[in-house]
Amino acid sequence: MPDLWGLASIATKFALYLGVLTSVGTVLTSILFQLSGHRRFTVMFASLGLAATLLSFSLAGATLTGDARGMTDPEMLGLLWSTPVGTAVTLRSLGLVLLVVGLFLGRIGWAFSLIGGGLALWSFTTIGHIPGRSRPVLNLVLMFHLVAISIWIGILSPLRTAALDANGATDAADLGHRFGRMASVLVPLLVLAGGYMGFELVGSLSALLGGSYGQALVLKVLFVAVLLALAAANKLRFIPNLATGDQAAANHLAKSISFEWMVVVAVLFSTAVLTSVLKLPA
């Protein structure tokens, strides 16, 4: 069982993933599918990501001393700042601020939000188990993985809102159909990218099943499998029914998306455990 700082680290990492991926994902889907009206939602999650970024940095200081003193100790924080941790915090904070500023700049703002979102996602390639391998290809695969999962998370709220709109069945069906077409390419690549990174990190079947890191990874993959099943049900059943004007399909889709959110939370939580406190197989 992780100590108090380990638990705090997991919680903060989870908030960080949820905040960054949801805000960047909403920006990406807004651009890709010409959606509007999600500024408040995006700002809320970007703020969560920013707060988690700063808290995560402060908590890292506490991990170095083993007590709360480290959270504000200039020597500990300065030491962290001199490592890739400082680079990640800078890129992430700058990226999220730029993303939010872009939301208030009208038509040209999307470029700022896009660059900001890119910086925030790229920050994850500066420190961690994958960047620790020092292989540029792996970093690119990780970046693709983050972009794809962001788009997936980013579509959930707009699609659910459209499905619940009494007059929005056609819009929801159209949005679901367009996303479904993109997902049919993106999702297989996402699975391949995840499989490749998992193989690079774990390396063997015995390490996958024998160690706590491997077991946690298996659990994450099981959650992802549930996510895939839900997405398939949406694409193959609810969206086509919605296109025919079936109101019951709209309710089913909205419920399915709510459940999809729960599974996304489980995936991000298991990722936070993997990246916070578990040791990679030797």
């Binding site: 069982m1 380990g6 706590s212 077991q215 659990l219 406190v277 578990l278 040791k279």
Partner: peptide
Amino acid sequence: VMKQILLTAMIGLWTTGAIAHS
């Protein structure tokens, strides 16, 4: 039932040991 499965799985994950690098 699905909520129960998720909760059980998360508790199982929570209790997997091995903290930190040495």
